[in-house]
């Protein structure tokens, strides 16, 4: 890529690999948004690394002309942690699926977030195991009939964002594969965040779980089924923006605006709140009882793991001087023979 001559474009970030997702898969639209966003975030392609686990979603790095690591099932956050620790100069993204991140890799996901490793984790949630041909996943809804649950799933599903908030992630957001403008904006915000960012992306698997997020994707429905969060603003939604979310005790409820109810009665979004309490309330609003929150639920600052590790090294060197190998070997009592 010739960076000097012109600004990079989305096309510059396309690799020469043939894309092998099923036609119509939601992954395509996420990839397209990523390619569009990358030229805008001010990081040279050689300083970007995409790390993934295993799953349809985890093929993502092959299709971007950046550095990339397609790892093993569930381990991408750990691979990324090691990489970012020794190379804080790189911008590191993790691409993972609902099975990859929340089932086999749940442990690593949790610890990467609580350490606040400066990595941006994109969790493609299709509520199914795509690559292994359609078994239920940790986010599949109760009763879901899949090839491994012919009588319906009896598992209670996980809320990915509750896990993120419970694990002290400093950036937590949600978007939808085909809600392109919104997704692009969320990716840009994630790119700009310093610390562990978790973005849940509703992704349609049109082969094994088609329509799982139809309520959120359908342009006619989504103004009533989603609320787009805006920092500092009362939470308003609806095609005519005539509904809002109000807190009744600790429970959110929908209220129509007008007839004496106005924006001042509504919950005001604060993504910078020190405690993740409000974010948790918003994260757990579930269709069809409530509209689901998309956008940035939480964005707070906390020192990153990689920075702290490297600061300790620098501080030790400043205090004690750079280590000399001969001194290290000679540690403790020594004696001389001959």
């Amino acid at each position: 890529m010739n960076a000097k001559a012109r600004k990079p474009t989305a096309g510059d970030f396309a690799s020469d690999q043939e894309i092998r997702w099923c036609p119509g898969c939601g992954d395509f639209s996420i990839l397209a948004q990523m390619k569009k966003v990358l030229p805008e975030i001010g990081v040279a392609p050689e300083n970007l690394v995409f790390v993934s686990g295993i799953g349809c979603s985890s093929r993502f790095p092959y299709y971007l002309n950046t550095y990339g690591v397609h790892g093993i099932h569930g381990r991408a956050p750990a691979i990324a942690t090691g990489l970012k620790t020794v190379r804080p100069d790189l911008q590191v993204w993790v691409v993972t699926g609902d099975g990859d991140a929340l089932s086999i890799g749940g442990n690593h996901l949790m610890h990467a977030m609580r350490r606040n490793v400066d990595i941006k984790i994109l969790l493609f949630n299709n509520r199914i195991y795509g690559l292994t041909k359609g078994q239920y996943s940790p986010t599949s809804l109760p009763g879901h009939v899949t090839r491994s649950t012919p009588y319906g799933s009896v598992d209670a599903p996980l809320h990915p964002l509750s896990i993120a908030l419970g694990s002290e992630a400093t950036f937590v957001a949600r978007s939808v594969d085909t809600h392109t403008k919104h997704l692009g904006a969320v990716l840009r915000r994630a790119a700009a965040h310093r610390g562990a960012a978790l973005v849940e992306i509703y992704q349609n698997c049109n082969v094994y779980n088609d329509g799982a997020f139809e309520y959120a994707k359908d342009v006619k429905l989504r103004s009533d089924t989603l609320v787009e969060l805006e920092h500092g603003q009362p939470i308003v939604f609806g095609a005519k923006r005539d509904k809002g979310i109000r807190l009744n005790g600790l429970a959110p409820e929908v209220v129509p605006l007008g007839n004496g109810t106005d924006a001042s009665d509504l919950l005001v979004h604060d993504e910078t709140a020190a405690e993740p309490t409000l974010a948790t309330v918003l994260a757990r609003m579930r269709h069809p009882a409530l509209p689901e929150a998309i956008g940035v639920l939480r964005a707070v600052e906390r020192p990153t793991f990689d920075a702290l590790v490297n600061e300790q090294v620098e501080a030790a060197r400043a205090r004690e001087g750079k280590g000399e190998l001969a001194d290290l070997l000679r540690a403790g009592d020594t004696w001389t023979v001959g």
Partner: peptide, 11 residues
């Protein structure tokens, strides 16, 4: 990674 022109994917 970080080397211009050598972007590649391992897997």
């Amino acid at each position: 990674p970080g080397t211009p022109g050598l972007m590649h994917r391992i897997g």
